[in-house]
Simulated scan of single mutants.
Amino acid sequence: MSMDYKQIIIAIDGSEEAEWAFKKAVAIADRNEATLNLVNIIDTRSYSSAEAYDRSIAESAYKSAEELLNNYKAEAVQAGVQNVNVVVEYGSPKVMISKDLPKKLNADLIICGATGLNAVERFIMGSVSENVVRSAKCDVLVIRRPEGL
């Protein structure tokens, strides 16, 4: 049984927690010569009604997610990671990150920031990282922001 990671998913949502998680993910991918899959899920539940779910809103969300991930990709490549994929999908972040994408990408490690939500949202929805830890079939690494930062 190999102890190396080959397919790593890093969930990036633009938060500071995701930024810290990304830095760790790059180091791990580099050490393991793994493929780093930069993932951003556009949460379709945030479009509450049919008229609010306007194609142009969806397209602009997609473009900005892609731009965000491409900036991270450039940084990862510069740091020496050979294989970096950008994955932008629509759906429920919890389901996509813990179940759908790991299966599709054959992931053996998922890395995410400790939280991307404020206290109220966490209380109502639970954090994505919590859900990933509970339901993912592969290893999960949750990165905490260093104290005092």
Rank of each mutant, 00 (worst) to 15 (best):
D139K: 15
S49G: 09
E19M: 12
T44C: 04
L141K: 13
S2N: 12
V26H: 00
K137N: 13
A114W: 00
E51T: 09
V87R: 03
D30N: 14
S129G: 12
V26W: 03
D108V: 03
A25D: 01
I42V: 13
L69M: 09
V86T: 05
I124K: 10
V84L: 04
L117M: 15
D43T: 09
T115V: 10
W20S: 07
R144G: 11
M1N: 14
R45G: 10
K73T: 01
D13K: 10
V142L: 08
L117G: 05
S64E: 15
L117W: 05
V39P: 06
I110S: 12
A34P: 01
S49L: 04
I8R: 01
I111P: 07
A76G: 07
S60E: 13
G14H: 10
L68T: 07
N131E: 09
I143E: 14
S64K: 13
N83P: 08
V120W: 13
S60M: 13
M96F: 07
T35Q: 06
V88R: 01
N32H: 14
L38C: 09
N118T: 06
I41D: 02
R145T: 05
W20F: 15
K104C: 01
V77E: 01
S46Y: 05
S56D: 12
I8V: 04
I124E: 06
R122F: 05
I42S: 02
I124H: 10
Y47S: 08
M3I: 07
Q7H: 06
D30W: 09
L149I: 05
E59N: 10
K6C: 08
S2R: 11
K103M: 10
Q82S: 14
A119P: 11
L109S: 00
